[in-house]
Amino acid sequence: MITVERLRRSFGDLVAVDDVSFEVRDGEILGLLGPNGAGKTTTLCMISGVLKPDSGRVLVDGRDIWLEPTVVKRHLGVVPQEVAVYEDLTARDNLSFWGSLYGLSGSELKERVDEGLSRVGLADRAGDRVKSFSGGMKRRLNLCMGLLHRPRFLLLDEPTVGIDPQARLNILEVIRGVAAGGTTVLYTTHYMEEAQELCDRIAIIDHGRILTVGTLDELTRLAGEAEVLRLTGGFAGGEARDRLQAIAGVRVLQAGDGSAMLSVAAGGPGLLAVLPAVLASGLALDDVSIQRPNLQSVFISLTGRELRD
């Protein structure tokens, strides 16, 4: 189990991670979901022992990574967001180098390299220099490097950013396979769909703070208490806020020029009662849509913003 206790890290005046605590239970995939700049990478850097926290601690199977770094890191596999590969080396040479840093050598290293290359579908390009690879192939190699030593804990930082759907599916498939083999996975992403598809539990992070942690069902139930109406049209933000706030049982989540979102609280008048009041509000509406509870609505209900913001 990975236990993250009250991590805090600031860069000058900017508090990047603020009092972050969560657990990654043995054998599960925990998604750390949040928009860019939410503090996911900083959190992961502290968990992987690259960045020292200002306060708080990280325990991996009860061992503090900053007190016993080499012992703990032996069991960690880290796949960073940047494609950290040597472009002038072949795929095989890259893997051999990273394997050697984990103490692998000789025939064992060769077997692991061959196995890894097959797993990510790069066996036929093993002898090619990485500089000739596509972005997706580099991402797959990047993932393979983190798996070579068969880690018990795998930390992945947005491993599918900027790649084609096929390569993305391949990477997600590999991660599922690794998790099925008993590896504990912490997966950071800003793709809601990936978190929904892949993760057993999801922690939502924004502005350096964990907002909530739970299974997809738990989180959507949380959001289900408030259905979301999305409005678009030719109205000003201030005008929309004033008129919508006047409707009973409605909470305005966001009101900008041309778009607004509001939630309808459970136990109140209900969507069917609210909708006519919205239409009669006098706002120049082009479209009104109801959003079913999902991670997006959870995020909106927690932050008042969409995840892509």
Binding site: K73, L76, A84, W98
Partner: peptide, 14 residues
């Protein structure tokens, strides 16, 4: 710049 040193630092190397 390319994150190689950061990645090396995640390995069990002092």
């Amino acid at each position: 710049q390319r994150g190689m040193l950061r990645r090396i630092a995640t390995c069990p190397v002092s």
